[in-house]
Design a protein around this nucleic acid. Structure first.
Lengths: 261, 261
DNA sequence: TCATTTCATTGGCCAGGCCATAAACGTGAC
DNA sequence: GTCACGTTTATGGCCTGGCCAATGAAATGA
C-alpha cells in the first residue's frame, strides 16, 4: 500500500544534474538581464567552457530548454532566446496528444474554457492601453477582410492582447500552447470573406465587452466566437478532405493528427 | 510589414530532423501497442542501431521526450514510458515561470480556472464508475485525517478522478502540469488535523455535486475548496518562514520560486 | 553600386570510450 | 533452504575529438 506514496513522489523533477545546471545558468542569464528575449546566446563551445562541462552535456540542456520553447537553435547562426509570449513548445501538446489520443473536439473544448475565462479576467483588469490595442487590432481586422493571411495576424494578436490584459501569464501560456497547433493549420488555409466578416463582428463585440469591463458578457461573447470559429473550421476541413490538392489518398487516415482538423 | 508574417510563422516546430525521427519512432512504438505506459524501452545503444543514428542523436530525442514528461530515464536501469495521467513535465512550467516571472497567486488562479471548469464537466459526464471511485477516495480521506501523507494521496487521486470523469484529457494534462509543483511542496508539509477535516468536508460536497450531475454547484464548490486550500497553505507557508528548520536566512528571497508558496 | 565568391563561425551529427548506478547473479554462512 | 553479501553485467551519464552543413559577413570583381 505504501507503493502509492512512491507512485506520486516519483513524479518529481528527475533529469540529470548537468542538464539542470545548464537550465539554471540560462535562467540566470535571462533573469539578470544579460540576455533578453530574441538575443543570441554565446556559442555552444564557449558556453561549455564557461560551465566546465562538455559540449554534449551543454547540448542536452539546450535541447531541454528548446523542447519547452524557451530557446530556439538555428543551424549556422546560433541559439536564441524565444521572443513573444511565454508558451510551451507547440509540439509538446502535439506529441502528448498523439500518445494519449487527444481528439479535436477536446482541443476546442480546452481552448474554449481557457479563452473564455481569460476574456472574463481581461474584462476585469484591462488597462486603457490594452483596450486601445484591442481597438487597433479590431480595426485592422476590418481592413483585412480580403486578405486572410493579414487577417490571421491581427486575429492572433487580438487574442494575445486579451491574454496579456488578463494579467495572468500562466493562463496565457497554456492558451498559447493549445492554439499554437491551430494557428499553423489556419495559416495554410484560405477562409472565405463572409466568414471573416462575421468573425470581425464577433471580435468587435468581445472588444466592447472588455472595454465596458463586463466579465460575464466577455466570457459569453468569447464562447460564441469560438463556437462559430469551430463550426466554420470544421466545414472547411470537410471541404478540404473532399478535394485535396494532390493525389495522396491516405484513406481513412488511421492515425488522426491533432492539426489535421 | 511582412515581417509580422514571419514573426508568427517562425514559431512552428523547428527542432532537428533526427530528434523528430526519434519522437516519431517512440510514438509509433506506443501507438502500435508494442510498449505500454510503465514499460521499459530498448537500451539506447540498441535503439540507436535500429534507427541507424548515433547514440548521441538518439539521446537528444529521448531528452526531448523526457523534457515533456513522456519518457523517464533511470540511470543504470533503463528508459521508461511515463505512467499515470498525461501531463507535461512538472519542470516545464517551473522553468517558464522562472523566466517570465510567474507569481504564486497566478498559479492559484490558473488552477482555480482549470479545476472548477473540469469539475463542471465532470458533473455533466461522470459515469457511475467515476462516481463510485470518488466516493471511495472521499471515504479514505476521512479515514486518513490523522495521517497527512496518506491524506494527500487520496486528495490527489480524488482530483485526478474528476479530471478523468471530465472526459477531456487535455484539460486534465494542463491541470496536472500546474498542480504538479504544488504536490511536491505539500508532500513536505505537515497539515494540522483541523484543516484536513474541513478539507474532507469540502471534497464530500464536491462529490455530491458531481453525483447529482449539477455542474454549477460542482464548479462553485470546487472554487470554494481551492480558495480555502489556498488560504490554509498561505498561512502555513507564513508560519514555516517564521520558524525555519535550520539556519539559512536567505533574507527576502530575491528570486521567488513557484513551489515556495 | 551591386552581384559573386570566399571563408570563418556555429550548430548538427558521429565514433568510441570511460564512469556510475542499478539489477541480476552467484557465493557462502547460518 | 534461505538469507546476506560480494560480483558481474547491463544500462544511462558524460567526455574527447572530430567532421559536416548551414549561415552570414567580408573580400572580390563586374
Amino acid at each position: 500500500m505504501k507503493k502509492e506514496v512512491k507512485e506520486i513522489n516519483d513524479e518529481v523533477t528527475g533529469h540529470s544534474q548537468l542538464t539542470m545546471q545548464v537550465v539554471d545558468h540560462v535562467r540566470a542569464l535571462i533573469s539578470s538581464g544579460e540576455v533578453h528575449p530574441g538575443d543570441r546566446l554565446p556559442p555552444e563551445r564557449e558556453l561549455a567552457r564557461k560551465l566546465k562541462i562538455s559540449r554534449s552535456s551543454l547540448r542536452a540542456g539546450i535541447g531541454f530548454l528548446s523542447a519547452m520553447g524557451v530557446l530556439k537553435s538555428r543551424h549556422g547562426a546560433g541559439t536564441f532566446v524565444s521572443s513573444g509570449p511565454p508558451a510551451l513548445d507547440s509540439s509538446s501538446l502535439s506529441v502528448l496528444g498523439a500518445l494519449h489520443g487527444f481528439l479535436p473536439w477536446q482541443m476546442f473544448e480546452a481552448r474554449l474554457v481557457l479563452e473564455s475565462n481569460v476574456a472574463a479576467l481581461a474584462a476585469e483588469r484591462a488597462t486603457d492601453e490594452h483596450i486601445a490595442e484591442l481597438a487597433e487590432e479590431v480595426a485592422e481586422m476590418y481592413a483585412a477582410l480580403t486578405d486572410p493571411q493579414e487577417y490571421l495576424i491581427h486575429d492572433v494578436r487580438f487574442h494575445r492582447t486579451i491574454a496579456r490584459a488578463s494579467g495572468n501569464p500562466i493562463l496565457g501560456a497554456l492558451m498559447e500552447t493549445i492554439t499554437a497547433n491551430l494557428y499553423e493549420y489556419r495559416s495554410k488555409t484560405v477562409v472565405n470573406a463572409v466568414d471573416l466578416k462575421e468573425s470581425a463582428e464577433m471580435h468587435r463585440e468581445i472588444y466592447r465587452a472588455i472595454r465596458s469591463h463586463n466579465p460575464t458578457q466577455a466570457r459569453v461573447t468569447m464562447e460564441q466566437h469560438l463556437n462559430l470559429a469551430r463550426i466554420a473550421q470544421a466545414s472547411e476541413a470537410e471541404a478540404a478532405t473532399q478535394a485535396p490538392k494532390s493525389a495522396e489518398p491516405e484513406a481513412s487516415t488511421p492515425e488522426p493528427t491533432i492539426t489535421s482538423s
